[in-house]
């Protein structure tokens, strides 16, 4: 088969991975699977689109493609602003909904609330922006050969680089900073962490900010490589969960590796069977992991 699927799969895996980090962190620190996480991807993409539009209005040159890339510095700056906004959206959702339910102690009710919130958030996007797709740029990009048989566009290369940077940053935050140690402590044993004087509310805030910001980055990438539409995040949800579980819940490197496996398998399926079955790949991988090794590659408990 054509080796091109590897490059396509890695790009898709990078986008899934950024979302899966957030899923795995909320799962291990807040102990619930957040069905609204996909909406952070969509809301992040639309927030970036609006902010980039505003920047473009103030500084028209920001819209011109920079160097070989299809978009200019406007989208980059807008993406950074939108990452903060999406993180705040996640915190707000926690304040309004999840925190109240957490205090009542019924963890599965939180999952249900996240499912309801995801429907409402997505429908709201559909109302505001209609279901027709939007694009950051209409420019067509020429894919350049990197190794024989594999072509990658400049945008895709930049996105892969950014994913590696962001994933490394999260890894360093978790392993090298005081906040990262607190987060891991809460994930290991919340009761003990509280006894040790760790501010759990603060840890939860940072978790949402981080998860929301990364989901936004994933949404921007998805918008650059594919398109922006209200369902973009919802369609990512199954790959996100599959990657987080495949990698082992709570493991950030696991989430990334899981996402790359999902992305490459999807791309291989598209090439071998057909694009219409792409969405089933994540489900089959998920079932396989649950049957063979429910703790995932790097996970500890189930």
């Amino acid at each position: 088969m054509n080796p091109q699927f590897i490059a396509d799969g890695l790009v898709a895996g990078a986008m899934i991975g950024l979302g899966a980090i957030g899923v795995t962190l909320t799962y291990s620190i807040l102990r619930f699977s957040n069905f609204a996480h996909g909406e952070f991807i969509s809301w992040g993409a639309y927030a970036t689109l609006l902010t980039a539009g505003l920047i473009g209005y103030l500084a028209p040159s920001s819209n011109e493609g920079y160097g070989p890339f299809s978009v200019g510095w406007g989208v980059l700056v807008a993406g950074l602003i939108a990452m903060v906004l999406t993180g705040l959206l996640a915190v707000l959702l926690d304040r309004l909904l999840f925190r109240r339910l957490r205090r009542k102690g019924a963890s599965i009710t939180v999952v249900m609330a996240s499912f309801g919130a995801s429907m409402a958030l997505r429908a709201l996007l559909e109302f505001l922006f209609t279901s027709s797709p939007r694009y950051f740029s209409r420019d067509l990009q020429i894919a350049v050969p990197v190794v024989p048989g594999i072509r990658v566009t400049p945008d895709q290369m930049a996105l892969l680089g950014m994913t590696v940077t962001l994933a490394l940053a999260v890894h360093l935050i978790l392993t090298q900073t005081h906040m990262g140690r607190s987060m891991r402590a809460v994930s290991e044993n919340p009761a003990l962490a509280r006894v040790l004087g760790i501010d759990i509310d603060h840890v939860i805030h940072i978790t949402w900010l981080l998860g929301g910001a990364l989901a936004c980055a994933s949404g921007v990438m998805l918008g650059l490589v594919v398109q922006i539409r209200p369902y973009m995040g919802f369609d990512m949800l199954l790959p996100l969960f599959a990657s987080a579980i495949l990698g082992g819940i709570g493991s950030v490197p696991g989430a990334i590796i899981g996402a790359l496996v999902v992305g490459v398998s999807e791309a291989a399926t598209v090439q071998l069977i057909g694009a219409e079955w792409r969405a089933a790949v994540a489900f089959l991988l998920l079932i396989a992991v649950l049957l063979i090794r429910p703790s995932g590659l790097f996970g500890k408990r189930v």
Binding site: I108, L238, V302
Partner: peptide, 16 residues
């Protein structure tokens, strides 16, 4: 498995 896994799997069933 954990109750969340049933939720995620059934979600996958609907998609598939």
């Amino acid at each position: 498995l954990r109750s969340d896994y049933l939720a995620i799997t059934t979600f996958g069933v609907a998609v598939t």
